[in-house]
């Protein structure tokens, strides 16, 4: 699971959960994938990304690196920043870990790089 995917996950479907976002991420095993830098990809996708969610998650897993806490206005022209965004969005791959609902504490496992968001009928 890439952190870009994590950015689009929430546990709002659970009973009595208002936003369920961001999900807390814990990593037991991760890898860095070889993905060719693609500036257009980063420029395309960033407007859809919740930057606060990204940064707080990176901080939690010790991967914030050189990323600033706030996205600077000129991010589109800053190649170093675009490269770092590319690294954290698509190169870091969580293989084993878990996601936790910030409100209910419900845990969703990640196995073989695949988060499991299934729940029982009475949970949602």
């Amino acid at each position: 699971m890439k952190l870009l995917t994590h950015n689009f996950l929430s546990s709002r479907f659970l009973k009595n959960v208002a936003t369920g976002y961001p999900l807390l991420l814990r990593v037991n095993e991760k890898e860095l994938r070889e993905v060719e830098f693609d500036q257009d990809f980063v420029q395309n996708i960033m407007p859809k990304v919740d930057y606060n969610c990204l940064v707080s998650t990176l901080m939690a897993i010790g991967e914030q690196g050189a990323l600033p806490n706030e996205l600077p206005e000129n991010w589109r022209e800053n190649e170093e920043l675009l490269k770092e965004l590319h690294r954290v969005l698509v190169k870091i791959e969580v293989i084993v870990g878990e996601l936790e609902c910030p409100e209910s504490g419900r845990v969703f496992p990640i196995k073989d790089g695949i988060p499991n968001m299934l729940c029982q009928e009475d949970e949602c």
Binding site: L9, R33, F108, N116, M117, L118
Partner: peptide, 25 residues
Amino acid sequence: TRQTARMNRIELDTIQTDLIRGLRL
């Protein structure tokens, strides 16, 4: 799906869920 993507050198992510449950899109 991940395996097929990798076999063709494609990057994609998959989520185990019912339809779109858990997705914020």
